[in-house]
């Protein structure tokens, strides 16, 4: 599904990614762990095409397409979704209008007719249940006045609406209490299929206990330095990252 080769990226001229290689196959969940500033968020931003970052070398192939040649919205239409670490508040734009614009843009890209108002609202109702999102929230402006937990739930709700092929969860666990974490994680799990994949970026084991990744990577100083099974996450939780750094 996703093939990242020798990816180098900078922000404001500073090199953050220094040659990342990563392959994600259909149905796999990958975890990316690492210290603060290691480049985890940069990696997710580069995959979705945040214009603040500049790719200086390497390539990303997504289902056979050169991802770096696509605009952010086209990458979204191709099926890439990022659950933001800090979802943006958009005063004055209702969740309904926002979601309708997003969904219909994707349908247009895929050559499908826009969804009727009735079908759209039905879909909203259905998907809301997955993350137990209150109908009051979906009638408000995007993320405006939402609590930290509500914002993260709203991200998974949007994911459910857009049905991406590859989801990237960027520290979706940060700022969540135990109950909210469970709701978000269970929501995410219920959306998993054999054809969908995910990259989960986190500092902690906690979220991974729910999501059960197939493969765990350690990203340090802009490179993936270690890859292993789910046990690697447990080991990091117990021993930290220093032993990995020392082994380099």
């Amino acid at each position: 599904m996703l093939e990242i080769r020798n990816l180098h990226a900078t922000i404001n001229g500073k090199e953050i990614l220094k040659g990342v290689d990563l392959t994600v196959r259909d149905g796999e969940v990958h975890a990316v762990m690492g210290t603060n500033g290691a480049g985890k968020s940069t990696l997710s931003n580069v995959i979705v095409g945040n214009p603040a970052y500049e790719v200086t070398e390497g390539e990303i192939i997504f289902n056979g397409k050169d991802l770096l040649a696509l605009k952010p919205e086209e990458r979204a239409h191709e099926g890439i979704f990022l659950s933001f670490q800090q979802p943006v508040e958009i005063p004055g734009v209702s969740m309904t209008n926002f979601m309708r614009a997003a969904l219909n843009a994707k349908r247009k890209y895929l050559g499908e007719e826009p969804l009727s108002a009735g079908d759209f609202l039905k879909l909203m109702r259905e998907k809301r249940k997955i993350v137990e999102l209150d109908s009051k929230l979906t009638s408000r402006s995007v993320n405006e006045g939402f609590s930290g937990g509500e914002k993260k739930r709203n991200e998974i709700f949007q994911m459910a609406m857009l049905e991406p092929k590859l989801s990237i969860l960027d520290e979706t666990d940060s700022g969540l209490d135990v109950d909210a974490l469970r709701i978000v994680a269970e929501g995410f799990n219920s959306l998993r299929t054999a054809e969908t994949s995910a990259i989960v970026i986190t500092h902690y084991q906690r979220l991974l206990d729910y999501l059960r990744p197939d493969i765990v990577h350690v990203l340090l100083d802009g490179r993936i330095v270690k890859t292993g099974g789910p046990d690697l996450a447990t080991e990091i939780e117990q021993r930290g990252f220093d032993w990995i750094k020392e082994g380099l």
Partner: peptide
């Protein structure tokens, strides 16, 4: 960028924000 990541084209995103 948040809006574009959700698939809303840049011009449409600008328009929605101006309208808001």
């Amino acid at each position: 960028f948040y809006m574009r990541q959700r698939g809303i084209p840049l011009e449409e995103a600008r328009m929605l924000l101006k309208f808001a």
